[in-house]
Design a protein around this nucleic acid. Sequence first.
RNA 1: UCCUCGAUAGCUCAACGGUAGAGCAUCCGGCUGUUAACCGGAGGGUUGCUGGUUCGAAUCCAGCUCGGGGAGCCA
Length: 431
Amino acid sequence: MLQGVSIKHLNQHLGEEVMLQGWLYNKRSSGKIQFLILRDGSGLVQGVMVKKEVDQETWAKANSLTQESSLRVWGIVREEPRAVGGYELQVTRLEIISLAAEYPITHKEHGVDFLADRRHLWIRTPRQSAILRIRSEIEHALREFFYQREFVLADAPIITPAACEGTTTLFEIDYHGNPAFLSQSGQLYSEATALALGKVYCFGPTFRAEKSKTRRHLMEFWMLEAEMAFYDLDDNMRLQEEMIMFVIDRVLHRCREDLKTLGRDTDRLASISVPFPRLSYTEAVELLRQKGVAFEWGDDFGAPEETLISENFNAPVFVHRYPTALKAFYMKPDPNQPEVVLGADLLAPEGYGEIIGGGQRIDDLTLLEQRLDEHGLPREAFEWYLDLRRYGSVPHAGFGLGIERTVAWICGLDHVREAIPFPRMLYRMYP
RNA sequence: UCCUCGAUAGCUCAACGGUAGAGCAUCCGGCUGUUAACCGGAGGGUUGCUGGUUCGAAUCCAGCUCGGGGAGCCA
C-alpha cells in the first residue's frame, strides 16, 4: 500500500497528483462545490471538489462524509491563498475507509469537563495536536542535548522500596505481598549511576499522591533528571540554562506553525538569552519586601511569590541558597553560610512557576547520616545510598526538570493537563 | 484536608416564583470559492439526586453526588 504524502510536505509536490490519507476535519458545501478539510496528524489542508469535474459516485461519496471519517483522496496540489495553509488539493478521486458515527466534538465551544472525558478524541483538534507535537520536539531536543554532551541515559526504577525524599505522599502498590511505592524521583539512583558513569540523566514518569488540585499539578508527570560527578552548584546552573536555551531554540525553529496555531507570543521566547538572572533566596526575600509583600526569612515561596519574583525578569530566573529547613535532606550546606544549602530552583517567566529544582548533594558520610536522623528517615533503607559516600565520594550535583510545566510555559498554556496526552489528575483518570 | 464556584436538549448557554428557549450538532431541502460557511424546515427535555417551603419550584432552603478554580505540597 502506498503511504501517500503528508500534508506537511505538500509544498514539495506543487502541480503533481498526490494521494493523501487522513480524516475529515470539516466540510463545507454548496450545490456544485464541496470543500473537504482534511487532517493527517501533520497539518490541515483543504480539498476542493467541483461537481461537474468528477463522476457521480465520487460526488455522492464526498457528500456522505461525516466529521472524522477516515479517507484516502487523490488530487492535484495547487497554491491557493484563500485556503488554510496556503495550499489546496483539487480532488479527483476519493475512497472512504471508514464512515464515522456522529462525532461528539463539534467546532463550537465545549467545556473542560466534556473535553476531558473525551481526551482520546480531543487530541485530534489542531490546538491539542500542536501542543503534543511541541512536547515531542521538547523531549527530543532534551535527549539530543544530553547526547551531544556525552551524558549516559541511565533509567531509574519506577517501583521503589521506600520514599526517595521522605517528604511527599506516594502511591503504594503490592509487590508480591510486600509494600512498594511508585517513584517520586529517580535522583538517588541517578547519584549512583553518576558515580559509575560520570554524567547521566534519566527520563521517565514520576508519581505524587498528594491531593494537589491546581493548574500546575498532575498525579503522574514526566521528569528529566540529570546528575553529574564533579559538578558544583554553579556548573549545575550553567548546564541548566544551556539546556533550556537549546530547547527554546529548537522549538522556535522547528515548531513555527504549531506555535502560531497556539497564538503563542514567540517574541517573549526569542528574547531569552544566557546567562539567566541569579538571585539568592535572601535577595528574593528582599525583592518581595520592596514590592510590599510581608515575608519572613525562612518561609517558603508559594505560587504568588514565585510569580512576583519571575515578573521582574524576561528570562527564567534561578533562586539559589534556600534555608536548609526548606529543602531535602541530601542538599549540601553552603560552607560560607551553613544556614543555607547549595540548591537552586529555576522559575519560568510569565508566572509559570518552578520548572527545575536542583542542587549540589552532600558528599560527606557523617553529615549525610546526621541528616537522615534529623529527618526521621530509616538508615537501613538508605545504606546503599550511604555507600556512595563510603567508596570514593566526590562533589556532585544534579537537577530535575518537569516536562509538563516546561511544555505549558513554552506553549503558553493555562493548565498542565493539556501538556500531556492523557493527564492523571486528582479526580480524573479516565480515559 | 480547607476555601470558592458550578450542574437546564448531544454541546455551549438563556429563562431567576407563573406553559422550558436560542445557537451549534443531527436529519431533509437550497446555494459554484466556502473559511467555526450561509439560508429555510424537522426531530430532540424526569432542569444532577433526595427532601423541604409554596396554590405553583429549573428558579428559594437543606443534605448528597459529580466536577471546575485556588490554597497547602511540589516539578
